[in-house]
Simulated assay, not measured.
Amino acid sequence: MIRILLADDQRLVRAGIRGILDDEDDLQVVAEAADGQAALAACHALHPDVVLMDIRMPGMDGLEAARRIAADERLAAVKVVMLTTFDLDDYVYGALRAGATGFLVKDTEPEELLYAVRLAVRGDALISPSITRRLIAEFAARPDNAREPDERLEVLTGREREVMRLIASGRTNDEIAAQLVVSPLTAKTHVSRIMAKLGARDRSQVVVMAYEYRMVAPGWLAH
């Protein structure tokens, strides 16, 4: 059973999402929160598998709550999927840097939401929909986000660098396997090794590094 915490300051939004999740046999909403502080407290008390977190909330917002969850070793198993509306897409890059595993817009289809939650538990979720992936490339390519090459990248093999670029595109392990014509297990092994070599907590940190170190560039995801 996948245990979920809903964090959104709008009760109607929470009710709508909960209605979608409650219809699934393998999903359980264990708590709701109306702000980041309450979400953080619920994480410490309940240790949910996934937090569906709104970005803009009163008091402590979702980005700050996500940062604190990502920084707390006691909550290392908690995956955060950020929720927002199209007019807040400027926060996408910040959400990933804050430690979010995934990013969804609120008008996403129910099937996409369910898919994202299940992938998050596997550590295989990232960004949806595809338009948001292009925005990530644009924001990460801003000069103030650039970094000098990191010596940790030198330990990656050529195939691992290729896989890292595919991770940055938002592809799942199965999609990476299909593109590289390898088994899903092999793709998963590559991803795990990349995360271990880079000291990345999850896939979102791998994506941030890929853009900050210019391993991918704006427009690359469109191919």
Rank of each mutant, 00 (worst) to 15 (best):
I4S: 00
T101H: 12
S130V: 15
L156Y: 09
D22M: 07
V191C: 06
M82S: 07
T101G: 13
G199P: 03
W220N: 13
D90T: 12
I127V: 15
A210F: 01
D61I: 12
A15M: 09
L75H: 00
V117I: 01
L166W: 08
V78C: 00
S169Q: 14
E151V: 11
G94M: 14
F139L: 13
A178R: 10
P48M: 02
P218V: 13
R147N: 13
V181S: 15
A77L: 06
R67D: 03
L27M: 10
T186Y: 09
F139C: 13
V191Q: 08
D23I: 05
V80D: 03
F139I: 09
I194G: 00
S204F: 05
P143A: 07
Q10E: 12
P58Y: 02
P218F: 11
M195S: 10
P48A: 05
L40C: 00
G170C: 13
L46I: 06
K79A: 03
V207N: 04
L153K: 10
W220H: 11
S130K: 15
A177G: 05
E32R: 01
S130H: 15
E32A: 04
G170S: 14
A140N: 05
P143G: 06
G36A: 11
L96C: 09
L96A: 03
V206R: 06
G36D: 05
G36Y: 04
A66Y: 05
L104I: 03
T108K: 12
Y115V: 10
E160K: 11
A65R: 03
R193V: 12
A116S: 14
G170Y: 11
D26G: 00
D90P: 09
A217C: 10
A196G: 12
V207M: 10
L27N: 05
Q205E: 13
P48V: 00
R152Q: 14
T157K: 13
E64L: 15
D72N: 05
T108W: 07
I127A: 12
A71I: 04
A116H: 08
A168N: 04
Y213P: 04
I17N: 00
V181Y: 13
G99K: 06
M53H: 09
V182N: 03
L114E: 04
D150I: 07
M1Y: 07
I20W: 08
A39W: 00
R142F: 09
G19H: 04
A70P: 00
G219S: 10
L96D: 01
P184Y: 08
R203L: 04
A140S: 12
D202I: 07
T101P: 14
Y115C: 14
R134Y: 10
K106V: 02
V81W: 05
I4R: 00
R97C: 11
A140F: 08
Y115S: 15
T85D: 10
D25I: 15
M195D: 03
V78L: 00
D72I: 01
L52Y: 02
G158T: 10
E154Q: 15
E109M: 09
I127D: 04
D54C: 01
V182Q: 05
V206H: 06
V207K: 06
Q10A: 11
L119H: 03
E112K: 11
L113M: 02
S183A: 06
R11K: 12
L221D: 13
I69V: 00
V191Y: 06
R3G: 01
A100R: 06
I194L: 03
A38G: 07
Y93R: 11
S204H: 07
D202H: 14
H47P: 02
D202W: 08
S204W: 04
A140G: 14
D54I: 01
